[in-house]
């Protein structure tokens, strides 16, 4: 069942992302920023949690597929592409504000991202107890064992230059001191406004939300960034919470192209998810977008699937129980003997 079978889907954008974690649709801030931008721009789009960077020509996610055009990789490029297509959230900005938007975007994407990487991958407690298990669970299967290590190595290579410094009588890493400065810049810019540039969201809001939403996760083993945000910059924390409820009221629309993986570990780890993805694919029910399905339809569909599975199970049970079909193990032993001779 490809996207082209349904004319409605052919026109829609498809975003390839890393999978959900921490009650957010993705554990990657760049994917999250793209999702936020797409949600605000009110286009028809669907999310494909492919969890596989190899689908993208540059080995990076997020990737946006727009029909048959060449896919667009990276948050900045995705936003630029959507602007070109007429979904521009920055229309109401003046020239100075566009310049500011760019500056704050680079602050968040280049620098605050490093603070997140540090807290996630260089704090031993977090790596062991929080990030690694959570992300492995989100990725499922073989990828879950491989990718967290890669992410950690990348973060280590990137954050080499940060040293330990004394801050308010305590020894702490330089990055947390700097992170406070960066948060302060964002908080001052935001002030008491609803969004960064007035009362309409801009691309900067999407980027800031994508990153900050992952900064304020209280369930980490060492939630340093979370405590800095809540205690020292409560406006930023409130901003994040508000946008989170605003953006994710309804579940995201899943892509019909999301294929179940046939790796054994997937079946073993979460048989339910696996079975559901298989059934979805077989029954073709996925052409009905999840957003538009009513609860009654959903129940009907579950009943149909359930009764079919039940009937097949009863039939197979009957067949084996009555000996209509027998799996003969004797033949196999004969074969073995034959080999020995």
């Amino acid at each position: 069942m490809s996207a082209l079978d349904n004319p409605g889907d052919a026109a829609a954008f498809e975003l390839f992302t890393w999978g959900p974690a921490y009650n957010l649709p993705s554990f990657d801030p760049f994917c999250l920023a793209s999702i936020a931008y797409l949600q605000w721009s009110e286009v028809r789009w669907m999310v494909n949690e492919c969890n596989n960077a190899a689908v993208s020509p540059r080995g990076e996610l997020p990737m946006l597929r727009d029909g048959l055009l060449e896919p667009v990789v990276g948050t900045a490029k995705i936003i630029a592409h959507l602007k070109k297509k007429g979904h521009d959230l920055d229309q109401h900005l003046s020239a100075t504000q566009v310049a500011e938007c760019l500056a704050y975007t680079s602050l968040v994407e280049e620098k605050l991202y490093e603070a997140l990487l540090f807290s996630w991958w260089l704090e031993a407690q977090n790596v062991m107890k929080s990030t690694r298990p959570t992300i492995a669970k989100s990725l499922r299967g073989w990828a879950g064992m491989r990718i967290p290590t890669q992410l950690q190595q990348k973060a280590e290579a990137r954050l080499k230059k940060y040293r330990k410094v004394a801050y308010k009588g305590k020894e702490t890493n330089e990055i947390y001191v700097l992170a406070r400065e960066w948060y302060a810049a964002l908080a001052n810019k935001l002030g008491n406004q609803q969004y960064f540039f007035g009362d309409r969201p801009s691309s900067l809001d999407a980027v800031v939300f994508g990153h900050l939403a992952l900064h304020c996760i209280p369930s980490l083993a060492e939630p340093t960034l979370f405590s800095i945000l809540t205690f020292e910059f409560p406006t930023l924390h409130a901003y994040c919470d508000r946008l989170r409820t605003e953006l994710f009221t309804a579940p995201l629309r899943q892509s019909p192209n999301h294929r179940p993986s046939y790796i054994l570990t997937d079946m073993l780890r979460s048989p339910l998810t696996y079975a559901r993805s298989l059934l979805d694919k077989l029954s073709g029910s996925v052409t009905v977008p999840a957003k538009e399905m009513k609860p009654k339809e959903r129940r009907d569909q579950l009943v149909t699937i359930g009764s079919t599975v039940g009937a097949i199970a009863v039939f197979l049970g009957y067949v084996f129980y009555n000996g209509i079909v027998e799996i003969d193990t004797g033949e196999w032993q004969d074969g073995e003997k034959h080999n020995e001779e």
Binding site: E100, A103, Y104, S106, L107, E110, K111, E181, W182, A184, A185, L186, A187, N188, K189
Partner: peptide
Amino acid sequence: ADLTSFTL
């Protein structure tokens, strides 16, 4: 705040 962001 602008100073920090443009510096970065």
